[in-house]
């Protein structure tokens, strides 16, 4: 564990009016690391991703990328600094072609490519997620799974240091799941840091180096997947008191 810390979340609190969505959450993600952010529905996982990517600002607390404070910057600066993400409900740009969707990531991210260079770069990202055949297609023709791939390619096109994946593996069939897991693993091997919000337990076990478990906006456990998933409190959070 000698890798350096890339993303550092420091005692972050997020309130929506009277609702405390995230309470004093701290964790760090190192280079070459896949961190699983897990917990029951409504535990605040997506809110954490939204805080990191700049959709919301933390009520209190700080988030650092490579020791640079990013949590008081707007989303566009955070994206340019090297944070890429996918969304839980896929957000494809409907009136753009598949290739243009991916180019969007390469043109305005910290890569800032343009013209042929951007197009070629985007094509390679599409190949990488297995969507090379769909390049010129209109997005309306895509299946849900393909939309997810295109969205990942868009995030990759900005060459992010930190990649936030919000239930990207949900809804895949077993074969697709294996391909997806292999893909994410290869991204880690390139030196990226990945935060994975996920419910697919197989994926969490085989991919994550560490897990942070949230419940009701609070971190209730952190550690290697096998031991955190066996933690009594974690089981109680997922299944309720009687089963614990």
């Amino acid at each position: 564990m000698a890798e350096r810390t890339v993303l550092d979340v420091q005692s972050v609190v997020k309130r929506f009016g009277g609702l405390l969505a995230v309470d004093q959450l701290s964790f760090a993600v190192r280079q070459n690391e896949v961190l699983g952010l897990i917990g029951p529905n409504g535990s605040g996982k997506t809110t954490v991703l939204n805080l990191i990517s700049g959709v919301f600002k933390p009520t209190t607390g700080d988030i650092y990328l490579d020791d640079r404070l990013i949590s008081d910057r707007p989303a566009r600066h955070i994206a340019r600094a090297g944070v890429g993400r996918t969304f839980q409900l896929v957000r494809i740009l409907p009136s753009l072609t598949v290739l243009e969707n991916v180019m969007a990531g390469a043109v305005f991210g910290h890569k800032r490519l343009w013209g042929r260079e951007a197009r070629k770069y985007a094509e390679r990202q599409l190949e990488r997620v297995g969507m090379a055949h769909a390049m010129g297609m209109a997005t309306a023709a895509l299946t849900y799974i393909d939309e997810k791939r295109v969205e990942l390619a868009r995030a990759l096109a900005s060459d992010p240091r930190v990649l936030l994946l919000d239930e990207w593996l949900a809804g895949l069939n077993p074969t697709e799941l294996q391909t997806g897991i292999a893909l994410i693993r290869s991204l880690r091997e390139e030196g990226r840091s990945i935060v994975l919000v996920e419910h697919v337990m197989d994926a969490i076990r085989s991919l994550c180096d560490r897990c942070v478990v949230m419940s009701g906006g609070v971190k209730i456990a952190e550690g290697a997947p096998a031991e955190t998933l066996a933690d009594r409190e974690v089981i109680r959070a997922y299944l309720g008191d009687e089963d614990a």
Binding site: S53, G54, V55, P74, A75, R76, H77, A79, R80, G84, R85, R91, L93, P94, S95, L96, E100, M103, A104, G105, V107, F108, G109, H110, R154, S158
Partner: peptide, 17 residues
């Protein structure tokens, strides 16, 4: 290109920088 993306989805626009 940026305007085209903004017209499609402003949140995505912000997230690609």
């Amino acid at each position: 290109f940026a305007l085209h993306i903004i017209g499609n989805d402003e949140l995505v626009a912000a997230h690609v920088g």
